[in-house]
Amino acid sequence: MDTTQLLKGVLDVAVLAVVAQEDGYGYDVVRRLRAAGLEDVGDASVYGTLRRLYAGGSLTSYVVPSDEGPHRKYYGITPLGRQELGEQRQTWAAFADTMSGLLAGSTGNTVPLERRRRTGSEGTR
């Protein structure tokens, strides 16, 4: 499966989680996401997400001047961001459970159509 498609839905919470651990600037967040295993994450997607979360009040930002080059824009999490992170963490856990259960239940491909349907509908509850 194309993980970039999956990433789109969870990039917000992933970025929030990374920034919640420690404040970071754009490329730093990208690096930490990649280090955590999200190798396909695009730079620009992360930067855009940071800006959007900032505009939405989930992140704060501050500029740190640098002696060697251009200034760095750091992001930190706000109480609102923490609250959102908490909510999304729960949503994700429930969703992941559901998907895991769904996928684990369908390993045998001899399940009759009707039972498969039932499993599927139970799974999405």
């Binding site: 600037y25 730093d28 730079d43 930067y47």
Partner: peptide, 9 residues
């Protein structure tokens, strides 16, 4: 801050 990010990358 994009310049710093890209330069870092």
């Amino acid at each position: 801050g994009l310049e710093a990010d890209l330069a870092d990358a």
